[in-house]
């Protein structure tokens, strides 16, 4: 899975998730290249401002939240969801909505 970052945020060791092409379709950098600081200047000179890197932190969504934050999120959610989930699918929907609220806080 990939993560969108600004070219300024490139750090050594990041891996390019997809090839970067210019508007003529020429590949400037191929996918899976290990990025280094030297790439920043090059990309900027080609007018590239954002790139996709391989996201190692898939588990960032399992971050632990304290109970006060969770309570706040629940309160926000109850303004937006005025119904009770009736099955697993609806529970999942509520979960992703809650996750979204927590991430925005």
């Amino acid at each position: 899975m990939s993560k969108l970052i600004s070219v300024d945020e490139i750090q050594d060791g990041m891996v390019l998730a997809e090839p970067i092409q210019n508007r003529f379709g020429h590949t400037l950098l191929g996918a899976n290249i290990k990025l280094e600081a030297k790439h920043v200047k090059f990309l900027k000179s080609c007018g590239i401002q954002t790139i996709y890197i391989v996201d190692e932190n898939e588990n960032s969504s399992n971050k632990q939240y304290d109970s006060e934050t969770l309570e706040k999120a629940k309160a926000i959610l109850s303004q937006r969801v005025t119904w009770r989930p009736k099955n697993d699918y609806e529970n999942e929907l509520i979960e992703i909505a809650t996750q979204q609220i927590l991430e925005k806080m």
Binding site: R80, V81, T82, A97
Partner: peptide, 9 residues
């Protein structure tokens, strides 16, 4: 609006 509507069962 900010509502998340209830899905039709």
């Amino acid at each position: 609006d900010n509502f998340i509507p209830e899905p039709n069962i």
